[in-house]
Write a protein that binds this DNA or RNA. Structure first.
Lengths: 364, 364
DNA sequence: CTGAAAGCGCTTACAG
DNA sequence: CTGAAAGCGCTTACAG
């Protein structure tokens, strides 16, 4: 069929070996049925309908199956049962960048706790070659938890068409799906109040991007937090600087902020702890003391904030609890075809005061 | 069939609604074929064999399919193509505990980078209700990367029987599968050398458990590190204390160590950064100065170690690179049915000296 | 319990 | 391009 790169025609006599398409299973129900001297149905019953078989026959079949190394093909099984045994996490970002923030590890940890308990696998569903729709169409999962997704994303329609139950986390609640979220606005108010009450007048907000590519996800959470910051700051007009969500980007945004703004802000409200840690790095580099010269407050309450230098004041949200609540909801919808009504859970946030915030320097 | 809990027999007239089994797809190849006035084969060709169709026919079919919200059922498709579009990560621990260490987030980030690039989903494969074998039999994946698995785990045999390509990370290399690992022993030698050269005489090792439940995973990596520590320490006999792998367990093990050992060790070799951070917490609590009274050195080089108080001296290993190398190997084996030979990649570690290590206090 | 069969929704030769 | 068909490996009524 094809020429070798050397130009010499080659007998392609081991083509079958090279490709692994059309690879058939060596041991199937038929193999086991024959070995056990029973019908194929009986083999299936041994796994799925124990009550149809005598205990002895069943255990004999299972024993023979085991000795042959047989287990039902999960794909074939799923074609009839319509169950894959996996839950999907639909995410807006690529896996790599998403896991750069410890938030993600904690969230996945929460989902995983429920998956472990119910014997489910967890499949990460990042955009497939940039397309969430493609991933939503190709994903082999029984249910999906979404994180920070715009409900009008085409992927959501695809999932709905496939009748895959869905629970939204960190999206604007709507009538279509159950959701779990946190009081992001209220948390941001707490952060801004804290800084204002300490006496700061010049405040900067380290913000996620609020003008993302169309259809690439919701920016509901950032918008909520921004609104909360503004409300809490009252008469103070903040400087807003936008950045990617990783600590490194947070650091370089902070560097810009601190070198180009005169007079310098005396407090930074960071939209995530990852950004706050980046800001901390930038201050260390520039020799600016925290909280002596500038106060920094984060958002999320990831564990590392307790161990940074100085320990970070932040707004804590129940990350794992969000995941667990969403999974409970999802498992529930997985059992009842048509849930009676949509359920919207709203969890609270709280301020944790540590050592990265203080009154502004006396000169101010 | 069943009685309600109240004891009243109930007409189960909406049972069909309650169960979601036997749910059929509403739009299939047949629907699209009819709508487009072509054969079912033509619809399939539009997706899989464009060269069989004229450009116009193909785009007409795809357009109609889109307007019907059709996409090929991934499960049915997989039954013939034998491809799922997902890579599995077989892990020994439950998801929750595994992701408590930032190591895991970085490793998954590396796998995810490759998955994103190749349009693959990533499925986490923790033990299914405690059984890795059950998970190995049920997983719907094209290939598997294992992390810290004993090669004689029954799950490995199941994967092999299913002809699922496999690459081992952090296992003892063997002839059966390709592997990627790091010079754990050499890294541990570096750590022990460092501490010995600073003049420490009383050294403790904060170790992972070395007697795990049978078949629950390999303890190859811990064994390698322990051997390295011993070699580097030379004539010094260490105190060894075993603990679970999370920071919290590391902290309580350290608390025990510091209160029950007299005289106290002046240096701690922690088998992971997570454990080292736990040890740091314990020292802070007990009012023991680091590195003034006790030196601590970690292992892994996760980013947070640069931001702790004090910044942690540690042995850095290329975590993401390990994942990426394993994925490259796996993708390669996914193309060639029988790889010509097994490939064993061996990556190096290096010492990063920061501020958590110093000479022992003068009294010693 | 058996045995023959239909069905899950695709893909893929095959003859035309 | 079509159309009829086989096949992927199961599960699940069905009559006996």
């Amino acid at each position: 069929m094809t020429l070798s790169t050397s130009g010499t025609p080659i007998e392609d006599d081991n083509a079958g070996q090279r490709r692994r398409t059309r690879q058939r299973r060596d041991v199937t129900v038929a193999t086991v049925a024959k070995a056990a001297g029973v019908s194929r149905a009986a083999v299936s019953f041994a796994y799925n309908s124990p009550e149809q078989l005598s205990t002895e026959t069943r255990s004999r079949i299972l024993r023979i199956a085991d000795s042959l190394g047989y287990a039902p093909d999960p794909v074939a099984r799923m074609l009839t049962t319509r169950r894959s045994g996996a839950i999907g996490l639909l995410m807006v970002e690529p896996i790599e960048t998403a896991f750069a923030d410890q938030f993600m590890a904690l969230f996945v940890g929460g989902l995983g706790q429920m998956c472990d308990r119910h014997g489910l696998a967890l499949t990460l569903l990042p955009p497939l070659l940039g397309s969430s729709l493609a991933m939503a169409q190709a994903a082999i999962v029984d249910g999906v938890v979404t994180l920070g997704i715009a409900p009008d994303l085409p992927a959501m329609g695809a999932l709905e068409q496939r009748h895959i139950p869905l629970v939204l986390v960190d999206s604007a609640p709507n009538d279509h799906w159950s959701s779990v979220q946190v009081d992001d606005e209220g948390g941001a108010v707490l952060a801004a109040d804290h800084v204002r009450e300490l006496g700061h007048q010049r405040v900067a907000i380290l913000s996620f991007e609020t003008h993302p590519a169309i259809g690439s996800g919701t920016y509901y959470v950032p918008a909520q937090r921004l609104a909360g910051y503004r409300r809490g700051l009252g008469a103070i007009t903040p400087i807003i600087i936008e950045t990617h969500s990783d600590a490194e980007s947070g650091a370089s945004a902070t560097r810009r902020l601190l070198t180009e703004t005169h007079p310098r802000p005396t407090a930074i409200l960071a939209m995530s702890d990852a950004l706050a840690i980046g800001a901390l790095h930038a201050c260390h580099e520039l020799g600016i003391r925290v909280p002596g010269e500038i106060s920094i407050i984060g958002f999320d309450g990831i564990p590392v904030t307790a161990a940074t230098n100085p320990p970070l004041t932040t707004i804590e949200q129940p990350i794992a609890e969000k995941a667990i609540t969403a999974m409970q909801r999802l498992l529930h919808e997985l059992q009842d075809a048509v849930p009676l009504r949509r359920d919207h859970t709203f969890l609270t946030t709280r301020l944790i005061v540590r050592q990265s915030t203080a009154p502004p320097p006396p000169s101010d």
